[in-house]
Design a binder for these strands. Structure first.
Lengths: 187, 187
DNA sequence: TTTCGAATAGTCAATATTGAATAATTATAA
DNA sequence: TTATAATTATTCAATATTGACTATTCGAAA
């Protein structure tokens, strides 16, 4: 649903056609969505059928006609509803990179450490990239700041993990050995 | 691909049938994946076709037969490859909750603040929940700690945002007014 | 003025994901 | 004992997602 909120929110500020929307998201809002082009088109079609947006055909030169979308009244309503829901809620992220962490003990300690140090470097690199993004206007700056804040926190966490692995000791509060919990034998 | 890593990693530790796998993930590894039941079955079938795992039919009582999966040699190989890739890499998260933040200025300031305070409370609640999870064995504890670390960082960030909105001033380093960047008029 | 790469604009077949249904077995409480 | 709820186990139709392709126009270098 958040993708709908995104599209509606942008269209509310200014009407656009599909490619423009996609391009705008790519350039300014990539940090909060991974909507692909085809998905954007799919959702626009769907929301048009559902009556939240309406399209006007526009011809420029002798290019093929483009559909320029704008919000309808019920689209405005949906936008507000989705915005209110979004703001009040917290969605716990899924750290899929942690899947590897769960199987850390399947690799020789030195190998695992080397790989984690590489991850650490990748993160530092990205942090520098984010810090070097020229100041975006409006709320985008806020979103980038959020990414930076998060990344710093993640770097700190991974740093501690690496340090504790280097000590050969378990990381704080982790009892016993590494590895995922023992699996009960099949019933 | 991370879902494959997850399934292979668990199967490497002990052979299981589909439901067992799914149940195990739900109970212990929900913080690093959101794999649904049907997706788990789909992937198991696929990996069987691809030769990474092989199934043995098992009958218990007169229940319908179950397929118990185990890694093949090429499955072990794929597991290691995916693990190495995973550990060395960092995948920037997509904060879809930030979509709402980008449209904060579409709501009266007081309304927006009230909603963000609600989000803040939700996060505190979840933090307490995480802190009260009884100590899991093995690496799961580490993953939960990671969630806690992250959540604390997110709470701090949102706290600052709320404070700066309460001041009526722009949050640090955010220039000019709120809102997503101006959209160039269509070409 | 031709050509070649980039930008614009969109489509579609293939793939992936999931909510909901099915169905058997076992536990539980009435 | 006998409903009924919970657990075990899987399937499938409907939806959603995306990589790869098509096609036009524009800019600029040769």
């Amino acid at each position: 649903m958040n993708a709908k909120l995104l599209l509606l929110g942008i269209l509310k500020q200014s009407e656009m056609h599909g490619y423009q929307l996609y391009d705008f998201i790519e350039r300014n809002l990539a940090v909060c969505t991974d909507l692909k082009k085809a998905s954007a088109y799919f959702l626009l079609n769907k929301m048009e059928k559902e009556g939240y947006i309406q399209a006007v055909e526009q011809r420029v030169g002798n290019r093929p006609p483009r559909k320029v979308y704008r919000l309808t009244a019920s689209g405005e309503q949906l936008f507000e509803q989705l915005l209110v829901e979004n703001l009040a809620q917290y969605t716990p992220p899924v750290f899929s990179d942690d899947i590897g962490i769960a199987f850390l003990d399947q690799l020789p300690a030195e190998r695992a450490l080397a790989l984690l140090r590489k991850r650490f470097q990748t993160m530092q690199l990205r942090l520098r990239e984010l810090e070097n993004i020229p100041p975006h206007p409006g709320a985008t700056a806020l979103l980038i700041q959020h990414q930076i804040h998060h990344l710093q926190s993640e770097i700190a966490w991974l740093g501690k993990l690496i340090a504790s692995l280097e000590q050969g000791t378990s990381p704080a509060r982790t009892p016993r050995r590494e590895g995922i919990p023992d699996c009960e034998s099949p019933s």
